[in-house]
Each structure stands twice: as structure tokens, then as C-alpha cells.
Design a protein around this nucleic acid. Structure first.
Lengths: 126, 126
DNA sequence: TCATTATTTAAGCAAATGCTTAAATAATGA
DNA sequence: TCATTATTTAAGCATTTGCTTAAATAATGA
């Protein structure tokens, strides 16, 4: 951004622009946090994992690997990302580690699962 | 995936696993489509753009560049991605191109804006 | 027609992503 | 104690992402 390539039109409403700047500034943290969660859900594999955890309550990396036909390390790395992002949690039972959805962000995530099931319903009826 | 590194535990419930596989298979397309949209929203800059379009109804790349303090090409490339993903549309007025949210996916996106504004409210009251 | 303005496109590049394979941890049970 | 099982971690690598700068399009108005 070298100040070049900048529009200088008079159509621009400086009040509106300034208003928008303030809105963005006031919500900076929300944008960062929300976009982080959305980018976690914005991956095919992770969205499937989240969906399966919602359906089954708890699953281990091993099960997920079986279900999704992916290597255990690949699954494990996805789970770690989501754990770091606080959208999944885990408990240990023997040598098995059971992952589950954390409740904090369920309000955000649940509509996604609903959408998935709705579309499913649609294709089933056809 | 070389079949190696696979858990062979007896704890696994083969019925459950198979059930899960079916659920995933039945919704394959939904996962792909939904995760694509979420990954678009799962970026700080794009989430801000979406939020601003919701608030202001229409904005041009130039305005967005001003508001977000980013180069015009950077903004333009984000807008193109979202246009390709069908979550924004555009109309031309003279040499200005006005971008806006497409209605199709608003049901999915609106809760995000709500969350942003809620958090904003909270911090304002403090 | 030509300079100006708004936008897009393209090439280049550093950083992030998502897998792979191999090795490291940790719990279990013989 | 030692082999087995479940999981994580780490290194390597190809691909994708998101910016930059420079050049290409396209509309406007003198």
C-alpha cells in the first residue's frame, strides 16, 4: 500500500467511510475470533469431524480415521487444530482419547449441522 | 494411507462406524459446499467485507480499500473469490462497481453479523 | 482522441495449509 | 519388563493463500 492506486472520486461519502472505519475498529477482536472459528469449520475434513462429533457425542481419532478413510496422523492434526481453537475437547479412557464438541461455540456451529441434515433430507425425498 | 497405523481395537463398534460412513457419504456434497462458504467467511478481511456489505448494502472496491486500509488489488481479489463463491454480487454504475451480499446465503451469514454486533454491544456497555 | 479514474488481472513471492512417513509417548496386559 | 496398541509429534513437501507491484481494461469527460 503505497498510497498509490487509490480512488480519489468525489462520489465517496467521507461520513460513511469514517462510520465504517469506526465499526470495524470497534469489532476488531470479534472479527479475529469469529473468522478463526469459521476457518476451522471451513475445511471439508474438519466440518465432517464436527458433524460426526455432534451426531455421536464422542469419537476417538481411530474411529474418525476409519470413518473418513484418512490416516491417523492427518486426523490427529485436524483435532489438534480444533482443540487449540477451543471448539473440541477430549477425555482419556485407557489409551483411547475421546473427542467431543465443546459447548461454548455450539450456538454458532449447530446451524451448520442443521443445514447439512436439511439438504440430506431433500436428496433423500427425491 | 498404507493400511498401516490403523487401530485394531475391539472397542470399535462396527455398526456405529458403518452408520457414520453412510451419513458422511450421504452428505458429501453438503460438506463440500458448506465448507467452501465457511472458508470464505473464515478470513478476517473477507468477514469484515461481508459485515460492511450487510451494514451499508452496497460498497465499491475503492470504499472498502479506504475503510480497511488495504490496497485496491487486495480487496478486488477477495471480492472476486466471494463472487466466484456466489456470496456477493455486483452491479456497475459508470466506472464504479458496487458490490452487495447475495440473498441466497444470507440465512447462513446473518448469524455471524449478529454475533459481531452482540459482542460490540457488550464491550460498549463496559 | 486522449488523459484520467476505477477496477481487474497477472506474475512473483513469503507464509500457511494439509497431507505423508517415520519416530516419539504413553497406557495395557502378558 | 516387554511387546502391543492408541495417539501425538516432527520433518518434509506440494499446494494454496494472500499479499505486492506492474500492466491491462474499461468508462468518463475535456
Amino acid at each position: 500500500m503505497e498510497g498509490k492506486n487509490v480512488c480519489i472520486r468525489e462520489l465517496a461519502d467521507p461520513v460513511q467511510i469514517n462510520d465504517c472505519r469506526k465499526k470495524v475498529a470497534a469489532n476488531e477482536k470479534s472479527f479475529t475470533q469469529l473468522s478463526a472459528i469459521l476457518s476451522l469449520a471451513g475445511n471439508d475434513v474438519r466440518l465432517k469431524i464436527l458433524y460426526l462429533l455432534e451426531e455421536e457425542k464422542e469419537l476417538c481419532p481411530c474411529d474418525l480415521s476409519d470413518i473418513l478413510g484418512m490416516s491417523i496422523p492427518a486426523i490427529s492434526q485436524h483435532l489438534r487444530k480444533m482443540k487449540d481453537g477451543d471448539i473440541v475437547g477430549s477425555r482419556k479412557v485407557g489409551q483411547t482419547i475421546l473427542y467431543s464438541l465443546r459447548t461454548e461455540h455450539l450456538k454458532l456451529l449447530r446451524p451448520f449441522f442443521k443445514i447439512i441434515n436439511q439438504v440430506n433430507l431433500k436428496t433423500e425425498t427425491v
